[in-house]
């Protein structure tokens, strides 16, 4: 489903050159739940951003669903992300000015779907994460766990084949974290969604199919 070939990522400023990723090759199968672990600054999030086409590698290929992505222009990349990938971030990144349901509808705004259809799908997604009773709330009125569940609903509303989660439980206590993890596992098991998750928590990583360890931008195993 996701194929990375000889990926390198270098960040350059006027004076410093930082090698964030070094010769990473990786294949994530359809329906797999992969977790990525490693110390802070080892390149986990960079790797996830490359998989999500939010950033481009300095060298190497990113192939998603058999599609070479490096040649895609801004519009095509946007369309590709919209149809294939859902994102979950550690700090939720909900739009505080919009109600929960409008936040969840967001990915559908960039598709040709009617307002009615968008609303139906958003409510379905919110039901899936157990937040049907918070539809009209604003993000600032929710707890951290609830916010992350909204973020998951937003990630799954467009029924993407891939979900990329960057430390989704990082800001939550263990009980909340477990709840979120259960939702992700269920998505993977029932819907067959391919999930790649960056985490610091070995307990969470243990519950996934496969673990990838990074250290200083390189694969450890």
């Amino acid at each position: 489903m996701i194929q990375l070939k000889n990926i390198e990522k270098v960040y350059r400023t006027d004076t410093v050159e930082t090698q964030a990723l070094n010769n990473i090759s990786l294949q994530v199968e359809k329906g797999e739940f992969l977790s990525i672990m490693g110390p802070s600054g080892c390149g986990k999030s960079t790797l996830l951003n490359l998989m999500g086409l939010l950033d481009a590698p300095s060298k190497g290929d990113v192939i998603i669903d058999s599609q070479q992505t490096l040649q895609l222009n801004d519009r095509k990349l946007a369309h590709f992300r919209n149809s294939k990938i859902g994102f979950i971030f550690q700090s939720y990144h909900l739009i505080n000015d919009l109600q929960v349901v409008d936040n969840v509808e967001l990915p559908l705004l960039y598709r040709n779907s009617s307002a009615k259809e968008r609303r139906t799908l958003a409510l379905e997604a919110l039901e899936k994460v157990g937040l049907s009773n918070r539809v009209k709330h604003f993000p600032t009125q929710l707890s951290g766990g609830q916010k992350q569940r909204v973020a998951i609903a937003r990630a799954i509303v467009g029924k993407p084949e891939i979900i990329l989660a960057d430390e989704p439980t990082g800001n939550l206590d263990s009980a909340m974290g477990n709840e979120i993890m259960n939702i992700l596992l269920e998505l993977n098991r029932i819907d067959g969604t391919t999930i790649v998750m960056v985490t610091h928590d070995p307990n969470m990583a243990q519950r996934t199919h496969r673990l990838l360890r990074l250290f200083d931008g390189s694969q450890v195993q």
């Binding site: 999500g52 519009r75 946007a78 992300r81 859902g86 994102f87 967001l106 990915p107 960039y110």
Partner: peptide, 16 residues
């Protein structure tokens, strides 16, 4: 910028 990032991540192109 957070909103801009999210919108882009979820499929908004620059022109949108």
């Amino acid at each position: 910028s957070s909103e801009i990032g999210v919108r882009k991540a979820f499929g908004a192109s620059s022109s949108t």
